[in-house]
Design a protein around this nucleic acid. Sequence first.
RNA 1: GGCGACGUAGCUCAGUUGGUAAGAGUGCUCGACUCAUAAUCGAGAGGUCGUGGGUUCAAGUCCCACCGUCGCUACCA
Length: 502
Amino acid sequence: MAKFYVTTPIYYVNDVPHIGHSYTTTTADALARWHRLVGDEVMFLTGTDEHGLKVQRSAEENGLTPQQQADNTSKRFSQTWTALSIEPDQFIRTTEPRHHEAVGKLLSKIKENGYIEKGSYAGNYCVGCEAYYTDADLVEGNCPIHERPVEWLEEDNYFFKLSAFEDRLREWINSGAIRPAGKASEALGIVELGLDDVSITRTSIDWGVQVPWDEDHVFYVWYDALINYVTAIGYGQDSPEFADWWANSHHLIGKDILRFHCVYWPAMLMAAGLEPPKHVDVHGFLLLGGKKLSKSGLTQIHPEDLIGEFGIDGFRYHFLRDVSFGPDSDFSYEQMVERYNTDLANTLGNLLSRVITVVGKKCNGVAPGSQADSPLAELAEKTVNIAAEAWNSTAPSVALDATWHLIRETNAYLGESEPWKMEEGSAEVSAVLGTALEVLRLAAILASPALVNTAPQIWQAIGLEGSPTDNVLDLDYKWGQYQGGAQLTAIEPLFPRIKPQA
RNA sequence: GGCGACGUAGCUCAGUUGGUAAGAGUGCUCGACUCAUAAUCGAGAGGUCGUGGGUUCAAGUCCCACCGUCGCUACCA
């Protein structure tokens, strides 16, 4: 049994969940479900990033402690994931004691290995960004992001010797760990420009993980946050499973944090004597009318607003099917409606309805089993192969597209065969309907990572026990496993068509 | 300025290492059907593959230039 460890970024608790977070997390959840479906042992991790000056300050503004501030927002994330049927195996919080312990151990290890040294840093500091800026970065003396004045800060810092890892990073990047390839070349570009050592601690704040060898310092929030990925699987706890999970690690990230995940993080791991991640899968931004959805932007769309209209599965299906993993993608309400009506209502939902009705009229309601020979057998077997390959390369849209191609072909097959015109109880009518039912059975399985709630409903509507995920999917799928014999009864439309709001 | 990405039917996008007469879905037009969620099926219209050069027997697919959009440019979640 193979292991599969998939992570999302941990989300900063100053930000409430929006569809950008949901996209990444839904994709990770679907990947986790696919791997479970094919029999892998899966660990799916998400969580929240809770340290840093911004949390400290907004807590003060709200009259809360930083921990209370973090608790409140962290809860909103976990509630949102529950609302979307996202089921992580772990929800990690960087304020957990086990994380502080892991951070201390990993960075101490790096220090022992000679890659952390003391230095000092002074510069223009923007509180909003929690970052230093050079004079050239400033716009009229203000932070270029927040357009507010910066503060001059000078502090003793510990520095990570990032510069020592240029060659090894180049080698790792060239090994194909970063996908898609275009993002790997972006990471390579960063390395090729030359890497300076980076400051990884702060003395100016105390809301963070304390540096074990110098209690005046806390780690800069990024260097604490990244370590969550190894905390969760037992780094520093002598966990016998740590090495196995880590050897199969897959980070899903947005392109905005590529530098940290594709350069700094692997270098930190190397410095600590660990392997870099097996894969980093980088996706683009969701755009709204061609503009970037940013947390400081006004265009915040919350998942809760959409699931009321599209349902959990409608929401998940849209993001998994319509967004090609990698490039930027335009989000629009109209497209979401169109996708829902076309694929879910017209193609899949309607196929289920018409098949059940014809079984009722021509087979006395008793479902015929699928037969060995069917014009759709070859396509169905090919579809499983395409889907498997697509999920393996983190391309949910390709997997679902292939699955829906099969469903569309089944609608066309019914149109040609016209079973409703055939003689009741005849061999022909059984053959045609048996084919359609086998496709529905298979489609329920293949769509289950996206349609987590409706796939089991399809399964039961065609008279099967349990749910499509009860058994491991054999990737060497052979046509003709639908048994038949069940009494089918009409159901309410699975995906009622949506009339777009004006 | 430097580096990089992208620009394929109205829309959203596929197009492996260059090679059968450019694809899919959707939308549109026409027709069919009426088992079905005003659904379904068929046919059709629709593209100088950003522009201009070049390499090649052959380029959407490689090279150069240009135009347009966007990202990164050293600690920007």
